[in-house]
Design a protein around this nucleic acid. Structure first.
Lengths: 185, 185
DNA sequence: GAACTAATCGGAAACACTTTCCGCTTGAGA
DNA sequence: TCTCAAGCGGAAAGTGTTTCCGATTAGTTC
């Protein structure tokens, strides 16, 4: 692979990417994942053109924000499994995951809308979080016909932010009961 | 309430509404709930203007299609509870509900997107389906801290059509296990 | 530290819908 | 058959995304 003596990345470009990510995090949380791109570029103090230069599709910005969240979730998993007994670690991690998804309006629907824009994201997600959760699940000895992917997916679906903030957590609770007290061994 | 000697509704208008609903059902299933309005009006053989005359917002068309589905679900509930023992009736009804949601691409995400356009729909849904499901649930004696609404919601969330068509049904299965073998009596 | 250039910027223009408007058409009622 | 409001269709307006490109400006070189 040709390694051109590439010129260093411009400082303002790096700064703008950060500004945009910060602005996006704020807007996604306070307004919605569906807010107009201009609203984000305005908050970041740059033009729309700049936003689209760094994130060719609007969805790429969403992806970038989510990816940064994925990283923290993965790290949390490692930390928790070191500090708590298996099922407690699992419980806490699921709690955090639930909260992560529940915080950004429209995020869960967007991720599971089937929009091919997010296909790659799911893979990255799986690759990074999957092993961590798998370990937690095995340690907690839950039923075996449900895969790690299944569970991540299911929780993501259940945790759409809505009028009743207890909904997601409660249903996840039922789901976890179902995992433990199962009919398939 | 003033009952004006209102003129009868025009035959072509009635026909066009039907054509539009049929076209919408087809497009929602074959393409997606998010397909352009023009695609639907074309299939129906009318102009966009006509579509918007009968369904002022694009989402009204979605609503209309879903409402017709709700009606059949309600009827099915009654039928099933008359012909089967409680838990079998519940199982079958949940199956049908799962399939209903899983069939229209983008429907579940749309319904739970938080878009106020669908607020009324949720109420209608609840009013019509709630009692039926409540009866099924009581008859099947499942845990009590989960309401009928909760369950309808949860299933709807889980049944987003995706690459793996078995996902929804499987997770609903786990959820139902959780309802029966619970930790809260 | 001045000149050279490619990377970057920003906002205007091009697109892709959705929704509104309005002149023309047609079915219902007399 | 005649009248005329309901209904039609598609053009135009509104809204958000994505592309473009002339004007800047940060690295690099001398």
């Amino acid at each position: 692979m040709p390694e051109e003596p590439t010129r260093q990345r411009r400082a303002d470009a790096i700064r703008n990417v950060d500004l945009l990510l910060d602005a996006a995090r704020i807007v996604f949380e306070r307004v919605s994942v569906d807010a107009p791109a201009k609203q984000i570029s305005d908050l970041a103090g740059v033009g729309v053109g700049t936003l689209y230069r760094h994130f060719p599709k609007r969805s790429d910005l969403v992806k970038a924000v989510v990816e940064s969240g994925i990283e923290s979730m993965a790290e949390l998993g490692t930390t928790l499994s070191a500090q708590h007994p298996p099922d407690e670690a699992l419980r806490r991690w699921i709690d955090a995951y639930t909260k992560f998804l529940g915080t950004k309006r429209g995020l869960a629907p967007a991720l599971h809308s089937g929009d091919p824009a997010f296909d790659g994201l799911a893979d990255h997600f799986r690759a990074r979080i999957g092993p961590v959760l798998t370990e937690l699940l095995q340690a907690a000895k839950v039923r075996s016909d449900i895969s790690t992917d299944d569970l991540l997916h299911a929780i993501a679906h259940l945790c759409t932010p809505g009028p009743d903030p207890t909904f997601g957590p409660r249903m996840v609770g039922v789901l976890m009961d179902g995992l433990r007290h199962n009919e398939k061994g």
